[in-house]
Design a protein around this nucleic acid. Sequence first.
DNA 1: TAGCGTTCTTAAGATACCTTAATGGAATAA
DNA 2: TTATTCCATTAAGGTATCTTAAGAACGCTA
Lengths: 192, 192
Amino acid sequence: MYDLLIGNIKELVPITEDESKLIQKSFEPVYLKKKQFLLQSGEYSNHMRFISQGCVKLYSIDELGAEHILQFGIGGWWINDLYAYLTQKPATFFIQAITPSTVLQIHRDRLNELFDKIHRLDRFFRIKTQNGYVALQERTINSMSQSAEQRYLDFLGRYRDIEQQIPQYMLASYLGVTPEHLSAIRKNIRDY
Amino acid sequence: MYDLLIGNIKELVPITEDESKLIQKSFEPVYLKKKQFLLQSGEYSNHMRFISQGCVKLYSIDELGAEHILQFGIGGWWINDLYAYLTQKPATFFIQAITPSTVLQIHRDRLNELFDKIHRLDRFFRIKTQNGYVALQERTINSMSQSAEQRYLDFLGRYRDIEQQIPQYMLASYLGVTPEHLSAIRKNIRDY
DNA sequence: TAGCGTTCTTAAGATACCTTAATGGAATAA
DNA sequence: TTATTCCATTAAGGTATCTTAAGAACGCTA
């Protein structure tokens, strides 16, 4: 269960076998049924969370009650309301399982302890946060400058693996269009 | 010239008079004429930059040569290609003066020296970075869920001071619409 | 002052996207 | 299994936004 997590860390920073064991002992598994919440708006987000299995969504709800998906996460991804975690303020986002999922999470306090023992982990999370920032920047610019069809094709190119795990109406929410319009876009592409 | 900078820091963290003087000695002024670049895509961004006077824009250029403004900055704001600064990779954005501007900047190396001497500054920049992240998240969700008119009214509500310093076609670029459409939106609002 | 570039506006026609509603298939629960 | 809910598709008509083109207002510079 922890292979994916350890592999994910080793992609960016080297860790010893002992450190790997320490990390595994520090993360606790959370098992989510479909539609179960990992975090809800208003709650405090005190854990860093890594998806070991399954598929989840990070989204907000606007004044009209409409849902806007900011990010998906599948096995091998980190997922969080990062601002809420970092500032220790109440979350503005929801994190909910799309399929039955296993999440490995570590409490902020335990993570800080780990930082003392495994200094490179500090670097690991700094890089992950920076990557999250640049991904968000790209998404912002793309959402304003590209057509829905381009955004859809972009998504397929980058995240074909995610597309196969999520219902189409959620992808529509992520892309910022109605499910009907996404359906029409797909038909257009089919017909060339 | 440094009053705005010192005031900006004091809003978030307390600093002594000595520390204030040290900070002022560490930042160097850069004077920009209209349309002059503070940073260009491909260059390295090795400075943290604070706008003392004037107005600048942070933007990218897409494959078609079209400009997309991610952020404006006026006196009292920090402006940077933050990802490029943090990762020390080549910038993907341009920063250019809209009006004659004065920028106070500090090199990464000098800033790291300052962090050793004024520990609270570390906290200050962490908070600033986090605020930048959450602002970007809001912008992303708003750009996908709101009409151009709503985004325009939102902008006026938040940044009426910026709106008075920038030409309308740049605001259109920031909002993700054509100048003609923004003009039509304004006419609509005028006519109630 | 005259001329020129920059910015904003207006308008018409085209395209993108939305709303609503209906249908059928697939997944889920009783 | 049957009933029920959820989801994807299709279509029609409406609204939002874009493209193109032209002209007006403003400010800069010769």
